[in-house]
Design a protein around this nucleic acid. Sequence first.
DNA 1: ACAAGCCCGAGTAAAATAGTCAACTATTAA
DNA 2: TTAATAGTTGACTATTTTACTCGGGCTTGT
Lengths: 160, 160
Amino acid sequence: MRLTTKGRYAVTAMLDLALHYDDGPITLADISQRQGISLSYLEQLFSRLRKRGLVDSTRGPGGGYRLSRNAHEIAVADVITAVDEKVETTRCGGLANCQDDQQCLTHELWSELSQQIYDFLCGISLGNLVERQGVQEVAARQRGQASSVSLSSRTTEESL
Amino acid sequence: MRLTTKGRYAVTAMLDLALHYDDGPITLADISQRQGISLSYLEQLFSRLRKRGLVDSTRGPGGGYRLSRNAHEIAVADVITAVDEKVETTRCGGLANCQDDQQCLTHELWSELSQQIYDFLCGISLGNLVERQGVQEVAARQRGQASSVSLSSRTTEESL
DNA sequence: ACAAGCCCGAGTAAAATAGTCAACTATTAA
DNA sequence: TTAATAGTTGACTATTTTACTCGGGCTTGT
């Protein structure tokens, strides 16, 4: 299946956006610092998120990103499929041509698993996550430490 | 998450073993031909399956592999975890040290997903699969075509 | 004008995957 | 006792994917 750091980062970043929804447009630099994701990589991810209509962007100073709709209307599955191509466990990508142009012995199994995963991720929205105790705790911690480490050469601060 | 062709091949091969349980020990060459998996690769996989006690082996002519216990007592999850290391979706491998030695914002989510997947794969045994209509059909097809294509340089037949 | 910030595409190093190969050892049939 | 069958092991390798970086644009507020 396709569930990599790309998808994980995207969900984390989107959740960050959800948590700071009231603060107006959020810059990628902010997310980068809070979540420890490189700015360049975030740009790449948000390009896709924007194309899929999950976020709106504002350019220029004071600009940034914000969720395009209510956090409860954005499922984790939406975010992942926006950046990764698929949530699929079959080799053939659901085409059932796995073996000599015919369905392999375990095709059905992987199809079901894919569906299972997809359903699970569809059932959880960013809004759900925001409400969670655990998430709140981590978010509070992140507010505490004023973004100590800078990892990207492109972060705003010239700490080197 | 870790769900690759390695795991898929292993399940397919084990299912083949389950389907041909009554035929006595099954050689890897047989599985290779029926399922289109290279012999060398199967060797690697079965080495692990044996170490995990999922199959018993007999050496020498007439030898081969067989399931170590009833197909209903072997879950798909057992097979996958035997060859792949983990069924885990978190980056940190469940250690919760994802960000600065502390749990990242989405750690909980991926943990739950992992559990979800694991539960699903635990709930399905090789025995369950054998009983399925779809699997029966594919198995019948495989019996029909007397293993037309040989893909490995190491297959027994000297068809070249 | 200029700086903040988004936008975009190409390029790349490292890691993981999917597999190969060769040289064993054990067992059985002839 | 010899030859053939089949499992056993471990090292090695090509390919693919991942996870990025880089450099340059374009927009817009001040």
